[in-house]
């Protein structure tokens, strides 16, 4: 009864301002709708709204943090309350895992060394390891039809648009929006995302596109006769100049040869656990173009050869014994230093 009376009372005061002051509802809708559409067009087509938008992004992190608070608290309490036996079991598991990883690491050391040697033989620049930055997931995009996540590193940490993101098992996606203290990452499985890949076994190139399903990628335009099998590992080929090459992307799970289709249907499962990983790595790749890299490595090579030559000349000037053999030496010395011992051996 009381409620009804107050309701009626409010109504009395409401109707008057609604009709007496300010523009009508339709006009207000029109103005705001036009404003929204204009904002959308500007945001989609031009760049000058981006800084404003990234500054507004400051509010994003605290709100996502607050939204996550119940989950974080729950996880913390369950962690506090988890029994001793559980912890012991987990410890055991981690120890085994560590042992396995150690073994792989040993193998990797040998392989790296071999790789460096081979690269030296090939005259190419030294293998440079990419710089990485660890980051943590702070939120997931609420829209279920896009696969995007928020991470806790942003402009202040040097994150840039297009930067690749990895987890422990493989590539996850790339940064598409940078805010001061956070960034948005588009995952490989988003329907808008594609990544150039290579079959690790034979180097066959293809493009892996997202399907909107977090457990599936599809290879587009793979010829029916292409050598690709279930279980093949797909690694990033680095051809798009966005992702570094050689990181695992997915394993082929299905190859369907349908004579009614122009191309084979190839499906793959991402190796990264896209919907489970909490900690990720941001990769800082070399920003130089391949041409620049080639020129610079060539220059470095020339400088190294020059240095080797000078050293050799110095030693020759010091000992000054076999003059004729030294005069022929500079010609092959243009080749890498590893070939240098070859002409020396028959002389001895």
């Amino acid at each position: 009864m009381q409620l009804f009376v107050t309701g009626g009372c409010v109504e009395e005061f409401v109707i008057k301002p609604l009709f007496t002051k300010g523009p009508s509802l339709g006009v207000r809708l029109l103005v705001l709708a036009v404003l929204s559409v204009a904002l959308m067009v500007v945001d989609a087509r031009f760049a000058f709204l981006k800084p404003f938008r990234s500054q507004l992004g400051v509010i994003v992190e605290p709100i996502y943090w607050l939204g996550n608070l119940p989950v974080t608290l729950w996880e913390n309490t369950t962690q506090e309350l988890s029994s001793r036996t559980e912890l012991a079991a987990e410890n055991e598991k981690l120890k085994t895992e560590q042992l396995l990883l150690q073994r792989r690491l040993q193998k990797l050391a040998a392989l790296t060394e071999q790789n460096v040697r081979l690269r030296e033989l090939l005259n190419s620049a030294a293998l440079v390891d990419d710089d990485v930055l660890a980051t943590e997931l702070i939120g997931i995009d609420p829209n279920p039809f896009t696969h995007r996540i928020l991470i806790d590193k942003g402009e202040k940490d040097g994150v840039v648009i297009g930067q690749p993101v990895l987890d422990a098992r493989g590539l996850m996606g790339q940064v598409v929006e940078v805010m001061p203290y956070s960034a948005r990452v588009l995952l490989l499985t988003d329907t808008n995302h594609s990544i150039p890949v290579q079959v690790n076994r034979n180097g066959l190139r293809a493009i892996a596109s997202g399907t909107g399903n977090p457990e599936r990628l599809e290879l587009r335009h793979v010829a029916d006769t292409a050598d690709i099998k279930v279980g093949d590992l797909l690694v990033s080929s680095g051809l798009g100049q966005r992702f570094p090459s050689g990181y695992p992307v997915a394993t082929v799970s299905e190859v369907i040869h349908d004579s009614g289709q122009p191309f084979a249907i190839v499906r793959a499962i991402p190796t990264a656990s896209l919907n489970r990983s909490r900690y990720m790595l941001l990769v800082f790749t070399d920003t130089r173009t391949p041409e620049q890299r080639a020129t610079e490595s060539a220059e470095a090579e020339v400088a190294a050869d020059q240095k080797a030559l000078e050293e050799k000349a110095e030693t020759a000037a010091g000992s000054n014994t076999p003059a004729p053999s030294q005069s022929t030496a500079p010609a092959p010395a243009q080749a890498p230093s590893t070939t240098a011992p070859a002409p020396v051996r028959p002389a001895q």
């Binding site: 705001l32 904002l39 959308m40 945001d43 938008r53 996502y64």
Partner: peptide, 27 residues
Amino acid sequence: MLTAWCFGLLADVLNGALLGQNALILT
């Protein structure tokens, strides 16, 4: 309406949608 529009803009920033999308819907 203006309140709705402002909150819609905030939602856009939070969701990473085009600026104005949720604002238009809420308006």
